[in-house]
Design a protein around this nucleic acid. Structure first.
Lengths: 337, 337
DNA sequence: CTGTTAGCGCATTCAG
DNA sequence: CTGAATGCGCTAACAG
C-alpha cells in the first residue's frame, strides 16, 4: 500500500519498544511526557501512519459505518448524508455508502458487500427491507438503524420523523385555511414506505365535507408538473395541492404557471422537505421542514456511542414543522358567518 | 466484530486446509472442482465472510477509494458520486467520502484521515489543493485524480470537461443568437477554480461590440435570484443572462418573474449543468450538459485499472454540449441587413 | 512507566 | 492439486 515507516521503524528511531509507540499513538495508558515526545518526533520524522488493517485486525474494530440510501440525487438525502459524514469523521469513523435505487435486492447485495468490506453498523432508510437482510443482521449481531421514520413498535431502532402525523398536520393546516377539496401529489408508493405513511396520514385527516384525492407520479419536477397538469385537466376545481416533496411542488408551480393559474390566488400549493430553494421560489413555498441534518448527526452519534460505549441505540422522534410562507391562502368557507 | 466462522472453521468443516479454503474463496489457482464444492458448501453452512482486515493486512490492499468533494448538496456532485459508487461497487471496491466545504484545510485534514482509514487512491475536485496534500500524495505514492476539469498540462491527472471552452462556447452561442449585452452570474470564485476557468473562457470570447459583465453570488437559487435582480436594477438592459449553474438560472427565472419580465421575450437565460429539472421549468432552460455520470464511472474505472493492473491513469477530456431549449431567443442585430 | 510476547485472520510461499 | 508454515503490522495482556 505504501512504502513508509511501520511501527517498528518508529520504535527503532526513538530507541523504544513498539508497545510504547503504540501507546502514544493511541494516547492510551501512562507514558512519560518525555518519552512521548521522543515517539512523536520519530513519528513525524518517519511520517508514520498506523496501518489501519493491522489495527482493525488486532482490535476487531474497523471504525467504518455503512449507509445505504435509496438515491442520493434528492437534496434531502444529500443533506442527510453530509451530516452523517461530518459527525462520523469527527469521531474518526468513516462512512461507506451505497445506493439501493429503492430496490430490496440491490440493497441486500450492497449490504453484503459492505459487510465484506468491514462495515460495523448500518444505516438504512425506511422500514421496508428484505427479510434476508434482517436475518443477516441478526445472525451477525450487526447494529443498524432505520431512518427517516419513527416507529417505536418496530423491532429495529428507528430514528426520524413521524411521516403519518406530519402529513396529517399538513392536511389539517390546509383545512384550517378553509380548503375543502385537496389534491395530493406523491411519489411512487412502491418505492417508499415513507410516502405510504404520509398518504395514510393525509387520508386519516379527511373529514366530513373534505375531499382528499391522491395522485401518484415520478418523484421529480417533471412528475410533479405532469401530475398537477392532469389534476387541473380533471376539472375538479381543487383549491389546494399538497405535494409530498418540494421537488414535486416545484413541478406543480410550473404546471400552474403554464395553465395561467396564480398561486395562491387560484390554487394553493404546499410542499414537504423545506429544501434550500423553497423560500425563494415565487411565491415562497409553504412546506414542512424535515430535520435531515439533525437526523444525520443523531444517527451517527448514537451509533458511535453504541460501538464505543455499548450505549443502547434507541427510537428517537425528531420533529418536523410547518413553515408558513405565501403559497397557501386562506379561503372563506361557505359556512363561515 | 462478529462471532461467526473464520477460515479455520471452514477448513475444519470441509476437512481441508486453510490454504485450500483461501484458494477457492479467492477463486485463484487450480482447485479440484469437487474440493471446491466441499469448501463452498462449508462456507455456506458456516455463513463465512473473510475478514477484510486480515485480508487487507496480508495483501496490502484495502480496496477502498476516497473521494473528497466540495459539497454534496448540489445535484451535479450527487449524480457524480452516485456514478463513482456504482462503478466501484461493481469492481468490489468501496467508496469512502468526505466533504471539504471547498476549504483546502478541511480537505487536507479529511485526506489525512481517509489515508489513516486505508484509502488507496483519491478522487478530488478541481485543481486547487493545498501543497501539503500533493506532497503527501507524492511521498506515499498515492494515486489520485483531479476531476471536473481537464488540463493536460497539470502534473496530476485530470479527468473532466473543459470549463474554459464550454463557457466560451456558451457566450459564442449567445452571440450567434444576436446578443450583445450579456450578464454572467457565477458562484464564488474563491471556492472554485472551475468557476474561474469558466469566467476566463467567457471573457475570452468577448468581441468588439459585445459586453460581457460578471456577477458573483452565492451558488444557490437565492443567490441567482438576487444577482439577477440586481442586474435588472442596474438598468443596463442586458438581453441575455448566462448562469454558470442551472441552480443560479432557476433563481434568475424567479427574479425575472418577479420583475414581470418574460423569458425569452424580454431576457434570454442560459444555464450550465443540465440538471434533471432544467427541461421542465418554464420555459425549458437552454443549458450546457455536463457528463457528470460518465465522469464518475470513467474515474472509477481508471483508478481500479491502475490499482489492479498497474494501468496508467491518464488525462481524459469528456465533452459537454449545449442543449438548446426555449429560454434563449434570437435577436435581430441592428447591423443585420 | 516500559518492554516482551502472543495472537488477530488471512494470503502465500514452498513442499509434497 | 493440496497442506504446513511464515509473516503482514498492530494491540493487549503480562512482566518487570
Amino acid at each position: 500500500m505504501r512504502k513508509v515507516g511501520k511501527i517498528r521503524d518508529v520504535a527503532k528511531e526513538a530507541g523504544l519498544s513498539i508497545a510504547t509507540v503504540s501507546r502514544v499513538v493511541n494516547d492510551s495508558a501512562n507514558v512519560n511526557p518525555h518519552t512521548r515526545e521522543r515517539v512523536l518526533s520519530a513519528c513525524r520524522k518517519l511520517d508514520y501512519i498506523p496501518n489501519p488493517a493491522a489495527r482493525a485486525l488486532s482490535t476487531k474494530r474497523s471504525r467504518t459505518i455503512a449507509a445505504i440510501i435509496p438515491t442520493i440525487e434528492h437534496s434531502v438525502f444529500a443533506k442527510y448524508v453530509a451530516a452523517i459524514e461530518q459527525a462520523l469523521s469527527e469521531c474518526d469513523y468513516s462512512l461507506v455508502m451505497a445506493i439501493s435505487n429503492a430496490d430490496e435486492t440491490e440493497e441486500l447485495k450492497a449490504a453484503q458487500q459492505l459487510l465484506r468490506m468491514g462495515a460495523e453498523a448500518f444505516i438504512l432508510t425506511g422500514s421496508v427491507h428484505s427479510d434476508e437482510l434482517f436475518e443477516m443482521f441478526e445472525r451477525r449481531k450487526v447494529p443498524h438503524i432505520l431512518t427517516s421514520i419513527w416507529d417505536p413498535k418496530n423491532k429495529s431502532v428507528t430514528i426520524g420523523y413521524d411521516n403519518f402525523s406530519l402529513a396529517a398536520q399538513a392536511i389539517g393546516f390546509l383545512i384550517s385555511f378553509g380548503h375543502e377539496r385537496i389534491a395530493v401529489i406523491h411519489g411512487p408508493l412502491a418505492e417508499s414506505d415513507r410516502t405510504e405513511a404520509r398518504k395514510a396520514g393525509a387520508a386519516a385527516e379527511g373529514k366530513e365535507g373534505i375531499t382528499v384525492e391522491f395522485h401518484e407520479t415520478a418523484l421529480s419536477v417533471a412528475g410533479g408538473k405532469q401530475a398537477a397538469a392532469s389534476i387541473l385537466q380533471s376539472g375538479r376545481r381543487h383549491t389546494a395541492i399538497l405535494c409530498f416533496s418540494d421537488v414535486l411542488a416545484l413541478g406543480a408551480y410550473f404546471a400552474l404557471s403554464e395553465a395561467g393559474l396564480r398561486i395562491p390566488h387560484e390554487v394553493s400549493v404546499m410542499g414537504f422537505d423545506n429544501l434550500d430553494w423553497s423560500e425563494h421560489v415565487i411565491p415562497p413555498l409553504t412546506t414542512i421542514d424535515l430535520p435531515a441534518r439533525q437526523m444525520g448527526s443523531e444517527v451517527a452519534s448514537q451509533l458511535v456511542d453504541h460501538l464505543e460505549n455499548s450505549q443502547l441505540i434507541r427510537h428517537t422522534l425528531l420533529s418536523g414543522k410547518i413553515i408558513k410562507r405565501q403559497s397557501v391562502r386562506r379561503i372563506q368557507t361557505k359556512t363561515a358567518p
